[in-house]
């Protein structure tokens, strides 16, 4: 029973971070109809940056994280401006370009950061006794707290600000929104940057637990894609629910079924969703 509760807690912690990462993909898909195949590579880069800023610049863990996410945000803006903008209206080329970019980044990381896993220092040490039943690492609890905070901040931004209203309007109906005076180019730019920053946020939060290597990005991207399809493309609430489901299924499945196929569960979910409910749990987009 204690074991079960621990796997459950693990599932929630990981699931929330999956949700955070998937929100970035969902934002970009909803606004621009572009899937960023370099999503996982940006996640990794944020992890490397947070480790680098902490060790080379001597920043504390929190300033290093903020600086890393800010750097990814700027990188996302540059990507949109130089690479994605010329592909507007041609979904195929944006897929090809972001896929090529992910290969470039993987190989560049190999040369710059080396093949060995890297991680920033932990924010906190020790462990807490949860429910009087088992001990759980404080670092993981802190990750959960920060991730919940970032997600809450994102939903506040979405529902309480002018920018959020514009984002929701454009993802509902792009043409009507631009007729009402929304500048679609600016919204695209900001949405892409913000989507990348969310990948970065997930990266800096999870890197202290799971160190990064140059090639783990494919798995990160795929996880985010599965969550987005499960939740329903363009649905933000769906990302949170989908992330939690995937986190729980993976952790319980790995514990009780077969740990070698941990990432297989995500694929099984993807197939089931496509078969039974292709629009996802909360998807509204028509076929």
């Amino acid at each position: 029973m204690n074991d079960f509760l621990m796997y459950l807690t693990n599932g929630v912690v990981i699931g929330i971070i999956y949700a955070l990462s998937a929100l970035g993909v969902s934002l970009i898909v909803g606004i621009m109809n572009v899937v960023n195949f370099a999503h996982g590579e940006l996640y990794i880069l944020a992890g490397y940056f947070s480790a680098l800023f902490a060790s080379a610049l001597g920043l504390g863990p929190i300033p290093a994280m903020v600086a890393a996410v800010a750097a990814i945000f700027v990188l996302g803006l540059l990507m949109e401006w130089t690479l994605i903008r010329p592909t507007y209206g041609d979904d195929m080329y944006s897929l090809i370009i972001t896929f090529i970019l992910s290969i470039i980044l993987q190989n560049a990381y190999l040369f710059i950061f080396g093949p060995y896993p890297q991680k920033p220092p932990n924010w906190v040490g020790g462990a807490s006794n949860l429910f009087g039943l088992f001990f759980y690492g404080n670092q993981r609890l802190a990750c959960l707290g920060v991730a919940v905070g970032v997600i809450a901040g994102f939903f506040l931004l979405l529902h309480k600000t002018w920018f959020g209203r514009v984002v929701r309007a454009v993802s509902m109906d792009r043409e009507v929104a631009s007729m009402l005076g929304v500048n679609p180019v600016k919204v695209n730019l900001l949405a892409f940057g913000l989507g990348c920053a969310l990948a970065g946020a997930a990266g800096v939060i999870l890197t202290p637990i799971f160190p990064v290597t140059p090639t783990v990005g494919v798995g990160v991207s795929l996880t985010a894609f599965v969550v987005v399809v499960l939740g329903g493309m363009g649905s933000f609430g769906g990302c949170v629910v989908g992330g939690l489901i995937l986190g729980l299924v993976e952790n319980l499945g790995a514990a009780y079924l077969d740990s070698g196929y941990k990432h297989m569960f995500g694929f099984v979910i993807l197939i089931l969703v496509l078969f039974f409910r292709p629009a996802g749990l909360f998807g509204q987009k028509q076929l």
Partner: peptide
């Protein structure tokens, strides 16, 4: 399974298949 959902779904699903 996925082509009726549009091009993006094919790209996502084939990437997943390749990883699996």
């Amino acid at each position: 399974l996925c082509i009726r959902m549009g091009g993006i779904y094919l790209s996502l699903t084939t990437l997943a298949f390749s990883e699996i």
